[in-house]
Amino acid sequence: MSLLAIASALCASEAFAAAGGTLVVFYSRSGNTRAAAKIVQESLGGDIFELKTVRPYPADYRETTEVARKEQKENARPALQTKQAPKLSRYDSVILASPCWWGTFPMAFMTFFEANDLAGKKVAVLMTHGGSGLGRSEEDLAKYCPKAKLLKGLAIYGGDVNNAEEDIEEWLRDIGVK
Rank of each mutant, 00 (worst) to 15 (best):
2 S>A: 10
2 S>I: 05
6 I>H: 15
6 I>P: 15
6 I>T: 14
13 S>V: 12
13 S>K: 10
14 E>Q: 15
19 A>M: 05
21 G>A: 04
22 T>G: 01
27 Y>R: 10
28 S>I: 01
39 I>Q: 08
48 I>S: 09
49 F>I: 03
50 E>V: 05
50 E>H: 08
51 L>Q: 06
51 L>G: 03
52 K>G: 08
54 V>D: 11
54 V>R: 12
56 P>Y: 06
57 Y>K: 03
58 P>G: 02
58 P>C: 03
59 A>S: 14
59 A>N: 12
59 A>G: 09
60 D>C: 11
60 D>E: 11
61 Y>Q: 04
61 Y>I: 00
63 E>L: 10
63 E>V: 11
66 E>M: 14
67 V>C: 08
68 A>T: 09
71 E>K: 07
71 E>M: 03
72 Q>E: 11
76 A>R: 05
79 A>C: 00
80 L>K: 01
84 Q>K: 15
84 Q>V: 14
88 L>N: 07
89 S>G: 12
90 R>W: 14
91 Y>Q: 01
92 D>G: 15
93 S>F: 01
97 A>I: 08
97 A>W: 06
99 P>G: 05
99 P>W: 07
99 P>H: 09
100 C>I: 05
101 W>G: 02
105 F>D: 05
106 P>W: 10
106 P>I: 02
107 M>H: 02
109 F>H: 01
112 F>E: 00
115 A>K: 06
116 N>K: 04
117 D>W: 11
117 D>V: 08
118 L>G: 09
121 K>M: 05
121 K>N: 03
123 V>E: 07
124 A>I: 06
126 L>Q: 03
127 M>Y: 06
132 S>D: 11
134 L>A: 01
136 R>V: 15
136 R>D: 13
138 E>K: 05
138 E>Q: 05
140 D>I: 12
140 D>Q: 10
141 L>E: 14
143 K>T: 15
146 P>V: 04
147 K>H: 11
148 A>H: 10
151 L>F: 09
154 L>V: 00
156 I>H: 07
157 Y>V: 14
157 Y>S: 14
157 Y>I: 15
159 G>T: 06
161 V>P: 00
163 N>S: 15
164 A>F: 03
165 E>V: 11
166 E>G: 13
169 E>S: 13
169 E>A: 15
171 W>G: 03
177 V>P: 10
